[in-house]
């Protein structure tokens, strides 16, 4: 009831600041679909490495491409990677986690051991493995980051689902003759959704960072596609003569990640009933 009121009181500044930054990120991606100051890939060698000016707000890079347009276009890749990688994590992780919580016994052990195994590989390492085996590119980067998300979501789902299943209403639902699938959808999922939403937000931020890192290493976005990580890699050679090339994509990454983390923290405060303030 009265969610907005509760959000204002409990989510606090971090929720709204985070939400504003994330909204700005989404808006940038949406705008870039229809309009950028210049075509992001348009080469204009005579005006290369121009400092920020009225014509080129964020300056131009070593091939004369407009940095502002590239930053705008790069936000699309970041969002795409985040949405799909987190989507993969949720789609597979939630199913595995619920299966583990309901099946118990051997199946639970097997799923959790598998999760531990995948989890034990540093995300970047497994991403590098995957992209170097199947070739660099955004799709493989997304899959690698998505796979990394699966065990995190699976573990969280299992733990929170076990918590719900231990509640009396889950037992009451069984006493009423309901089957496991009905209980999963009716009782477990709605009650663990807040925890999953918070975690998904955090994983989204991690996915953006991971994509930037992979693209920086040349394993993510390939030309003519552009991404913030790739822009950073290109900027490295001219860091001292044209620092704005690194500054703007760097700031974009930092603000996006900051926004998502603040949003996640704020949502956790707003959704966690344990932090309920007595009025």
């Amino acid at each position: 009831m009265n969610l907005p009121v509760r959000f204002r009181r409990r989510g606090g500044a971090s929720l709204w600041f985070g939400a504003a930054l994330v909204a700005a990120l989404i808006a940038a991606a949406a705008v870039s679909l229809f309009w950028t100051p210049y075509p992001p890939a348009a080469i204009d060698v005579p005006h290369k490495l121009a400092p920020p000016s009225w014509a080129h707000w964020f300056g131009t890079d070593s091939l004369g491409r407009d940095v502002a347009s590239q930053v705008l276009a790069g936000s699309r890749i970041s969002i795409l990677v985040g949405v799909i990688a987190v989507g993969i994590g949720l789609a597979i992780g939630v199913v595995l986690g619920l299966l583990a919580a309901f099946a118990r016994g051997l199946i639970e052990d097997a799923i959790m051991k598998l999760s531990d195994f995948v989890f034990a590989f540093p995300a970047l390492l497994s991403a590098i493995m995957l992209t170097s085996t199947y070739g660099p590119g955004v799709v493989n980067a997304i899959i690698a980051i998505g796979v990394y998300n699966v065990p995190i979501i699976a573990k969280l789902t299992r733990v929170t689902a076990n918590g719900v299943l231990a509640r009396e209403y889950a037992l009451a639902a069984r006493a009423a003759g309901r089957g496991p699938i009905a209980i999963a959808f009716d009782h477990v999922l709605p009650n663990i959704a807040p925890a999953l939403i918070v975690q998904a937000t955090i994983q989204f931020a991690i996915a953006i960072l991971a994509e930037a890192a992979l693209s920086y290493l040349g394993l993510g976005a390939q030309p003519p596609q552009t991404s913030w990580g790739k822009m950073l890699a290109d900027a490295q050679n001219v860091l001292y003569s044209a620092p704005w090339l690194a500054l703007y994509p760097g700031v974009a990454i930092a603000l996006s990640v900051l926004g998502l983390n603040l949003l996640g923290d704020g949502l956790r405060d707003a959704l966690d009933p344990k932090l309920k303030t007595r009025s």
């Binding site: 509640r167 009396e168 209403y169 009451a172 639902a173 006493a175 009782h187």
Partner: peptide
């Protein structure tokens, strides 16, 4: 059940 507080799904 014993606990009417927790035996209904909130």
């Amino acid at each position: 059940f014993q606990e009417p507080m927790t035996a209904l799904n909130p």
